[in-house]
């Protein structure tokens, strides 16, 4: 295999491995909380592909394929991580040391649950999440 072919293969492998690792290890906090790592992996894959293209003699399509794939992933990954997934920063309507607003909401069986139900009984961890819409 030529140096160019080797670098092209390495580039594709790195990009695919980054996607697989992120998808499979999503429940590991260290992986989940560093989504910029997959963007960085795509950037390295693209750099490898650029070198592959510059060194290509004769058969050029593997290097160009690697470059097309890695630049597409870098564009999409960067856009998703730095634009789409960004949540605006604003202070919440509650403060440490104070009681947050009370609420009553139905649970899975339709029974109303209030935050105040737990007062004097046990601590509560409220997890607000986006759901699946």
């Amino acid at each position: 295999m030529t140096t160019s072919g080797f670098l092209a293969a390495l580039s594709v492998l790195l990009a695919v491995a980054a996607i697989a690792a992120y998808a499979l290890l999503l429940s590991v906090p260290l992986v989940r909380n560093h989504p910029e790592a997959y963007v960085a992996a795509f950037a390295v894959a693209m750099a490898l592909a650029v070198v592959a293209v510059r060194r290509a003699r004769g058969r050029r399509w593997p290097a160009w394929t690697a470059l097309a794939l890695s630049s597409l992933l870098l564009g999409l990954g960067g856009w998703f991580n730095f634009v789409v997934a960004r949540v605006p920063v604003a202070p919440p309507a509650f403060r440490v040391g104070e009681r947050p607003p009370d609420f009553t909401l139905p649970d899975a069986s339709g029974r109303p649950v209030s935050l105040a139900d737990y007062r004097g009984r046990k601590p509560v961890v409220l997890v607000f999440y986006r759901g699946y819409w």
């Binding site: 949540v87 605006p88 919440p92 509650f94 403060r95 440490v96 040391g97 104070e98 009681r99 947050p100 935050l115 105040a116 737990y118 007062r119 004097g120 009984r121 046990k122 601590p123 509560v124 961890v125 409220l126 997890v127 607000f128 999440y129 986006r130 759901g131 819409w133």
Partner: peptide, 17 residues
Amino acid sequence: LPRPATVVVDRDGAVRW
């Protein structure tokens, strides 16, 4: 949509973290 957030409320009903 909600902003993802985690709030720890102590036994007295006050936010601690």
